[in-house]
Amino acid sequence: MWMSAFPTRPCLTQRWSGHLALAMIGLMLTVGSVAVSAAGPEAFEPPVTCLCISADGEYVVDGSQAGIRIRRWHDLAVEAEHPIPCAQIHDCRISADQSRLVVVGGDPGQTSFVGVYAWPDVSEIWSRQFGEDVLYAGSFAQSGDVLALAGHDHGVYLVNADNGEPQSILRGHSKPATDVRILNDSRTLLSCSIDQTIRVWNYQTGSIVRSLNNHTQPVIAMAVRPVTEGLPMIASVGEDRTVRLWQPTIGRLVRFCRLKSPANALTWTNTGDRIIAGCRDGCVYSIVADTLEVRTYPDISSGWVNSIAAHPKQSSIVVGTSTGRVRKILLDH
């Protein structure tokens, strides 16, 4: 039902060579060495924290503490690696016009990082560090002139996407903001947070429009439905194990369902009829938006599914896991 790829890549540092050595020992000592042989090789990879796919569907970008890697879609082989000058990378996204890649993260407890790079060569256009903690998400406006950022320091930042100049800070969340999205109406910005809310903002005025507070645990991620008919719709997931569908411009919770495990990441399929959620039980769940029928893709990872991206043309997704793997999954129809 699903395909997987395990691209090999060179070790990045001497430390990784040490890990490789231990892994080899573990593989050889097949009995009694519970620690190393079973979990060793997979556990040494840093978690894959973000994924995005180019609009032509040819490339996958993944981010982790090891940096940014560009992979070919068809076999997920790494074509290029780009170190990023911060300890953590939490999000990467390509602008709608496919000209820029934004990477956000930072050094936990110290500073945030946002870098905008030319796509696809990943040459730096600008980068900034500010604040005292990391950014968890970045999102281009459809026009490409505004970049919204969600910060651990509870703030939602708006910066000029061309040069990184700060424009405004949206304050309202009482705990770290975990994700941010901008609707195509050039007005509405959505942010979600550990504080269990989704805030709807008018980012042109900096005012809060409403707060969607039906989640009963931290809200981790959101995704905007890729269709243009009718009112905009988003999906959100949280530690309360629910997937909730909203019409944020009118503040309506359309419907929701509860999964077996909290989700860390979600995306809509390119047709906009299903939501795909990557969860902490190592499974991926496909939810039909209109009926909430759930299909399970089990055993994707022995750890958490941390990141997810849907192919723009095919019925496939790619997921990144806490054990450092990137896998491709062909979805059922």
């Binding site: 430390r15 040494f44 978690p47 503490q65 939490h90 806490s322």
Partner: peptide, 14 residues
């Protein structure tokens, strides 16, 4: 410690 917030509390490279 190891997984929440995308593993922010551990630095695997340093």
């Amino acid at each position: 410690i190891a997984l929440a917030l995308e593993g922010r509390r551990l630095n695997r490279r340093d």
